[in-house]
């Protein structure tokens, strides 16, 4: 036994070390993905017998207005959430200085990311609150009529996205501050001697060096946008009249709330969201794979 181990440990050891973590990950993450795929072909209330109904759940989705509202809002989320990348870069450049106390400023600017989205949601609900919210008052002051952002179907999603951007910009900012700290100073100085400055310098000298930070910023922002659930749930609960739903929230609403326990239909919505995210995930993995195998 011991001689067997001695001879083969290089081959066995990695699997030994992998086993506990991989088993947990398999049971709780990988297998459930396939189970959800399968459940999406059933009509199931979570308790009784599941009835196989083929693609009926998906057929129902095609005619479901709430599904399209959620899908549309997901697209809006994705597009506007990506603003966090340039805004975070702007903030990082603004703060990348060496004046006294700048470290404290950087940590305080980063603050929103540390706070739970539930708390962020409550803070912005207060900020937007009709009649006494700070923003409501400001709008009233300027236009004479206050707007209760979260009660207006046309504005509600944008109001929630702004709340989501707050911590996301902070996250992107910290990525770029780290990136800026690691830029080769000689290249910057050389470019400066050649007369490069301002936007030109940023575009041709700085941004290419910040590429790894930009990649991570885009990844976490895209994933964050499509995962948005907490803020919608806390700030509006999908309302008014379901106008601020996103796919993740609509799935939860269908599968596990007072509106019903339609596990199969919920799973079908989740599969659609999963398919959308897989497009991005495959892209990220493909790039990471290329980087790994190049080395």
């Amino acid at each position: 036994m011991s001689s067997y181990w001695k001879r083969n440990q290089l081959r066995i050891a990695p699997w030994l070390f992998l086993a506990p973590g991989a088993a947990m990950f398999l049971v709780y993450v990988i297998i459930p993905i396939f189970q959800s795929l399968s459940i999406s072909f059933y009509d199931w209330d979570g308790l009784g017998e599941a009835v196989y109904i083929g693609t009926e759940n998906y057929v129902e989705l095609i005619d479901d207005d709430a599904f399209y509202t959620s899908l549309k809002n997901n697209v809006i989320w994705l597009l506007l959430y990506l603003l966090a990348v340039p805004l975070g870069l702007f903030l990082a450049i603004f703060l990348n200085q060496t004046v006294r106390g700048i470290r404290i400023y950087k940590s305080l600017f980063f603050f929103p990311f540390v706070v739970s989205q539930v708390v962020v949601g409550l803070m912005f609900s207060w900020f937007y609150a009709p009649n006494f919210g700070l923003l409501y008052k400001l709008i009233e002051l300027v236009t004479g009529n206050g707007i209760a952002i979260l009660a207006e179907e046309d504005y509600v999603t944008y109001g929630i996205i702004v709340a989501g951007l707050w911590p996301q910009i902070a996250y992107v900012m910290i990525l770029y501050i780290t990136g800026l700290n690691n830029i080769a100073p000689d290249q910057v100085e050389a470019a400066r001697l050649d007369g490069a400055k301002g936007l030109k310098m940023l575009w041709y000298v700085i941004l290419p060096q910040l590429r790894p930070a930009t990649f991570i910023a885009v990844v976490v922002t895209v994933i964050g946008a499509l995962r948005s659930f907490d803020l919608v749930s806390i700030m509006t609960d999908g309302g008014p009249y379901g106008s601020s739903r996103v796919l993740s929230f609509y799935m939860y609403e269908q599968a596990l709330s007072e509106y019903g326990f339609r596990m199969g239909y919920g799973a079908a919505i989740a599969v659609v969201l999963f398919a959308i995210m897989m497009v991005f995930i495959s892209g990220f993995i493909w790039k990471m794979w290329r980087d790994e195998t190049e080395r």
Binding site: P14, L18, A22, F25, Y28, V29, I30, I31, P32, I33, Q35, S36, I39, G46, V219, I223, L226, R227, F229, L247, S248, M251, Y252, A255, L256, M263, G266, A267, I269, A270, V271, L273, F274, M277, F280, I281, F284, I285, M288, W289, E292, T293
Partner: peptide, 24 residues
């Protein structure tokens, strides 16, 4: 090796909702 590694990475990005019903 890389296959297992990227399975961990990819799993980490999936939407929670695709796991919700089975995990519950």
């Amino acid at each position: 090796n890389l296959l297992v590694f990227f399975l961990f990475v990819a799993g980490n990005f999936v939407p929670f909702q695709i796991l919700m019903v089975p995990v519950r």
